[in-house]
Amino acid sequence: MTEDLTPAEEAVARTTRQLDARGLRGLAHPLRLQLLNSLRRGGPATASQLGKELGESSGATSYHLRQLAEYGFVEDAPEHGKGRERWWRAVADEINFDARRVDQDDPEIRGATDVLLHEIASTHYRETTSWVADRDRWRNTPWEEAGVFSDRTLHLSADELTELSERLLALLQEYDDRDRTEEGRAEVRVHLHALPVHRESRT
């Protein structure tokens, strides 16, 4: 029931999928994650278009798109089709994953979790290095100094880290709720990493 939700919360509920064990098994493949991310960010596309974009054969992208459809991550977009072309679109705008909600003692689940997290980390790395390589594109524009490329070390309790994470995500949601079509807006990727670090003692 969504009667008690605000309009913004209803929109999130409609477009966010919580990843369960079955979905994790279906998504834990590097190419499937890349395909889903491309559809979520770039909109509907065909297997051939996605293959060209990702440097894969249309046979491989077609197979993995069908697998994503079987697990409910993508669906047909018939309004875009022309003739025999099959167009695909993402079902949800966002995928949430909480490792505590699945059985991490199951070796298969643990392996799938590792694949998922490694591919997410690889995606963030590729996007960051791509920005570094392409940064001259933004020279002498308002975008040149608009972003941030920084890190900071904090000393927090587990409860404080949880609070920080929740406050940052809430702030991001405020900006995500704004009109995406307004003039002057562009796609901006925000990478949020707040992770505990193990450091061996020097003594």
Rank of each mutant, 00 (worst) to 15 (best):
L154D: 05
F149T: 09
L65E: 00
T153Q: 07
R189E: 04
V12M: 12
T113F: 02
R152D: 01
A77Q: 08
D114Y: 10
R137N: 15
G184L: 09
A121G: 08
S58T: 04
L31A: 08
T162N: 06
R66P: 00
D98H: 14
A60E: 06
T128F: 13
R66G: 06
S58A: 12
G72P: 09
D136F: 05
S122I: 04
R84T: 07
R25D: 06
E200M: 11
D76C: 04
G184H: 11
K82S: 07
V12Q: 15
A45R: 02
Q34P: 00
G111Q: 10
Y175A: 12
T181Q: 15
A90T: 03
R178F: 08
H198R: 12
W143H: 03
L68N: 04
P44Y: 06
E200N: 13
L33S: 02
V132R: 11
E187K: 11
G83H: 10
E3P: 05
A158T: 07
F97W: 08
V197E: 14
D103Y: 04
E56Y: 00
I120V: 15
L65M: 04
G111W: 11
D93P: 02
R178E: 14
D106I: 01
T203N: 13
T162P: 00
V115Q: 05
Q173G: 12
D20G: 13
A158Q: 10
R101A: 10
D4F: 12
L36C: 03
G42K: 02
Q173N: 13
R25S: 09
R86S: 00
D105M: 08
L68R: 03
A194V: 09
D179W: 10
T15L: 09
D151H: 13
S57Q: 02
T128E: 12
L169K: 09
T2M: 10
G147I: 05
R89H: 03
P44R: 07
P142L: 04
E145R: 15
W87C: 01
S58V: 01
P107L: 11
V148D: 04
L31T: 11
S130L: 12
A158I: 05
S150C: 07
N37G: 10
G81D: 14
V12P: 03
A21R: 14
S157I: 02
L164H: 11
